[in-house]
């Protein structure tokens, strides 16, 4: 018996008010455990797709189910990571990590347990009482990631989370994200501008075209997990990066 999809877009159309159609006729289903990267030129509506899954904005047409329910009803199954670390500067690292749970009314004892587990996952030891201004860009992003992981979400929405980081930090965090995925089974929707990052992380890459946002092509990435530095050095990896880059160039030129 096939596993029911965790997210299912069915002919989804979205426009804001009387504005132009942002995304048009999206059909996409995600199986539990999928790591789906969304890549495409600016204006292709990749961030809008995340907002729709999050139930922050109503559909204009089509239907969308998240964990078998409407996006609004499934909100508790989701966690988010943005490009900005979005930490509260007046709270310590420990409090920042617990904020998402606090908003959902989790008890103090349960918050502390989940926080310790998340700190373990993102490898950010001994910084519990630090304030965000004392952290590096990579450390802030680890806090932001830990905050999302404390919710043990079924679906993780990541909107260019590592876009502002330097190459080295980004690669480290990519590897750690996959490590975490081995221990916490969520389905990921990952918006990025980096083809290399998309190929390294995902099992599916959705290349989108803009005006209006449509799915141009889906690319399957069949390298086995766990992926490591060796994956990045392998020939098939480079071939696939070249292929996806080519697809991206073709949609950007039209």
């Amino acid at each position: 018996m096939p596993v029911p999809p965790i997210v299912a877009f069915n002919h989804v159309v979205k426009r804001y008010g009387d504005g132009p159609v942002v995304i048009d006729g999206i059909d996409l289903t995600a199986a539990p455990g999928d790591f789906i990267s969304l890549i495409g030129p600016s204006g292709c509506g990749k961030s809008t797709l995340l907002r729709l899954i999050a139930g922050l904005s109503p559909l204009t047409g089509g239907s969308l189910t998240v964990d078998g329910r409407t996006p609004e009803d499934a909100a508790a199954e989701l966690a988010f990571v943005f490009q900005e670390p979005t930490l509260l500067p007046w709270l310590t690292v420990a409090h920042n990590i617990e904020v998402a749970q606090q908003l959902r009314g989790v008890s103090a004892a349960d918050r502390a347990t989940a926080r310790r587990r998340a700190v373990e996952l993102v490898r950010l030891h001994g910084r519990d009482s630090a304030y965000p201004r004392q952290l590096s860009g990579g450390q802030k992003m680890r806090v932001s990631l830990a905050r999302a992981l404390t919710l043990e979400p079924k679906i993780l929405l990541l909107d260019e989370p590592f876009g502002a980081l330097d190459e080295m930090t980004r690669e480290h965090l990519n590897e750690e994200l996959l490590d975490i995925r081995e221990k916490q089974a969520w389905t990921a929707f990952f918006v990025t501008h980096s083809v290399a990052e998309a190929v390294f992380l995902s099992n599916r890459i959705i290349v989108m075209s803009a005006n209006p946002g449509r799915i141009h092509r889906e690319v399957r990435v069949d390298f086995p997990y766990p992926r490591t530095e060796a994956t990045r050095l392998s020939r098939p990896y480079h071939d696939l990066v070249a292929e996806v880059s080519g697809l991206l160039r073709s949609v950007e030129n039209t």
């Binding site: 999050a54 943005f82 900005e84 979005t86």
Partner: peptide, 13 residues
């Protein structure tokens, strides 16, 4: 900060 407001809204504060 708009991003922080967005974060709170996303978590249905």
């Amino acid at each position: 900060d708009r991003n922080l407001v967005e974060l709170f809204r996303m978590y249905r504060a």
